[in-house]
């Protein structure tokens, strides 16, 4: 089996592991599981990376593989996700977001709000906000048309604004949300 050169693999680790971890954390909502998913994704890269035909596609391959691995493990453990629930009613909040309010949101609050956004919208939202992937790449990773990505982004942002507003304005703390240090440094 063809393998990638170690130097190239290390480059892919340095460039993408932090964002892969963030994506995994938003999917799994568990730090240990997110770390395992990230590690497993790179392990698969080291063993199957030779199958990647164009190195420019490696980034998409990594995110796609992590996502598939997440759903595969969920299936193995009998925990299924409602990925097709985008028929649920939207939050009609395309109003202008209040700068002052949302600037008060730190990383922990944003993660908490993201974790309460429905799965179907959370995936494209996180990939969008990671600022690393084009619409076309996001569509490839999620295996949906670009139009679907843009529609889910629009509705997902409205839902995120709603969730952020709730998180910021209430003491409401749903279960199973990610708990993060409030002043973590940028990576």
């Amino acid at each position: 089996m063809t393998r990638l050169k170690p130097a190239l693999v290390k480059k892919f680790v340095d460039e993408h592991y932090a964002n892969l971890y963030r994506f995994a954390l938003c999917l799994a909502r568990d730090e240990a599981e997110a770390a395992d998913l990230t590690q497993q994704t790179y392990f698969l890269l080291s063993t199957r990376g030779g199958q990647i035909r164009e190195m420019q596609k490696a980034k998409s391959w990594l995110f796609t593989t992590l996502r598939r691995e997440f759903y595969r493990q969920r299936q193995l453990s009998g925990r299924f996700l409602s990925i097709d629930d985008d028929d649920a009613p939207d939050w009609e909040t395309h109003d202008a977001p209040d700068d002052e309010v949302f600037r008060a949101a730190d990383a922990a609050i944003v993660m908490e709000a993201l974790s309460t956004v429905r799965e179907v919208f959370r995936e494209p939202l996180v990939l969008f906000y990671l600022d690393e992937l084009s619409y076309r790449e996001i569509a490839e990773i999620l295996e949906v048309p670009i139009g679907t990505v843009m529609s889910r982004l629009s509705r997902g942002k409205a839902e995120l604004r709603h969730c952020l507003t709730v998180t910021l304005s209430e003491e409401h703390r749903p279960e199973n949300v990610v708990s993060l240090p409030r002043s973590s440094k940028a990576n």
């Binding site: 680790v13 971890y21 990383a107 993660m111 973590s184």
Partner: peptide, 24 residues
């Protein structure tokens, strides 16, 4: 703002080394 906050979420300190160790 959301992108900036997301970028502040730090991976575990030993994750990079664990990845490289496993691959090595």
């Amino acid at each position: 703002t959301i992108s900036d906050r997301l970028a502040e979420v730090s991976p575990p300190a030993d994750l990079r080394d664990s990845i490289l160790t496993g691959m090595e």
